[in-house]
């Protein structure tokens, strides 16, 4: 399942995922955004694994936010944009 979101004034944020039961699995973030330090990328992917598929945008953004390492630098990317892409991917799977 695949969801994309182009942040206004930002970059393309893409989520690919599967549903295992009623939870998110194999979640993979990608896109042409800027994110540092490098391991922040793995932190975001890990934070999304196993979330209930019904998790709303606000809660997804909060989960991403909580997983970010200290000193993170994002350009063209935000926890809220990730949350929109996740919801779009889930809805694409249900539709």
């Amino acid at each position: 399942m695949h969801g994309e979101y182009k942040m206004p004034g930002g970059k393309l944020v893409v989520i690919d995922l599967a549903l295992r039961g009623d939870r998110l699995a194999d979640v993979q973030l990608s896109g042409d955004f800027f994110l540092e330090p490098d391991h922040a990328f793995a932190c975001i992917n890990a934070a999304l694994q196993n979330l209930p598929a019904a998790t709303d945008e606000l809660a997804i953004a909060a989960a991403v936010h909580a997983a970010l390492p200290a000193g993170v630098r994002m350009y063209g990317l935000s926890p809220e944009a990730v949350a929109v892409a996740v919801r779009r991917a889930v809805q694409a799977g249900i539709a």
């Binding site: 893409v14 690919d16 993979q28 973030l29 990608s30 896109g31 042409d32 955004f33 990328f41």
Partner: peptide, 9 residues
């Protein structure tokens, strides 16, 4: 490709 881009996408 950029550091965070999906190869197949």
């Amino acid at each position: 490709i950029g550091r965070f881009q999906s190869l197949r996408n």
